[in-house]
Amino acid sequence: MSQNLESLTVETVFSRWPFAQQHLAEAGLADIADKPEATLSELLDAGQLEILGNFISVMEDFLGTKDEKVHEVTILGGRAKDGSDEPVRELTVSVGDVVCIVGPTGSGKSRLLADIEWVARGDTPTGRHVRVNGEVPGDKWRFSSEHKLVAQLSQNMNFVMDLSVEEFLNLHAESRQVGDPEEKIKRIWNWANELAGEPFALDTPVTSLSGGQSRALMIADTAVLSASPVVLIDEIENAGIDRQQALDILIREEKIVLMATHDPILALMGDKRVIIKSGAMQKVIEPSEKEKANLTELRAMDEKLMGLRHRLRMGERLDEI
């Protein structure tokens, strides 16, 4: 960790390790608190950085609060299918980010996501490197059941266990050994009901939930109970759930959200859009002001379609739309 302290800002260091501020004050460096935006390398020399790094590790060991939380994931560009350099050399996604990945079939979307999941170290066909919190991550992210970097949600997934919603969530909470499972289960259930629009009970068998209810429960459960900091969403556009709210829930639970989607509403809801072609990240763009304005119109169209669906369900004719 000490080798990466230098690139962090004073503000970040103080928020992550509050005890660092006092340590620096005692070392006669109290005034660095006045420059929250500056990085440590601009303010401290190598010796001071090393001492601070050691102090942080000792404190973490002592407090038992070793920071396992993932704040950001960085992808360092590798090469395209033809061997040329990948145009995007570095992409960092942080907690709360929603990133869309777009590109035709076979363009390399899956490989990009696989590189993240496998925390590539230049040892995959793309030669990409992945950093977790700016560091070269250890093997635990590759092989342990507790530390999988990526959780996945896709249209093809189903519940296969013969359990009620409550039993099911209990089982998941138990396997994760989380504190206060009852509160978490209630939270998941409430959120899932809000997302789905058609409520279900805690004693409903998971296998008899509708498509929308299943998807809603999967999203709420992944947000609250999954160990993985990155959530990959693959084609949930037709799921019949409140997509904006689904993203809000994932962001609120401090997930990094990646979406492989060509749904215009979802794509414009993202903070960034990664364009993939020929096995490489070509560009990273942000939604333009015009696009954001169009989002309002797209939502209105979407609501109109939803309204028509509802009328069909109620047995009405669609002579007037």
């Binding site: 959780a151 093809n156 997934m157 266990m161 999954s226 160990a227």
Partner: peptide, 9 residues
């Protein structure tokens, strides 16, 4: 690819 994230975990 065909079961939920929770079941995988």
């Amino acid at each position: 690819d065909i079961v939920s994230q929770a079941e995988r975990e």
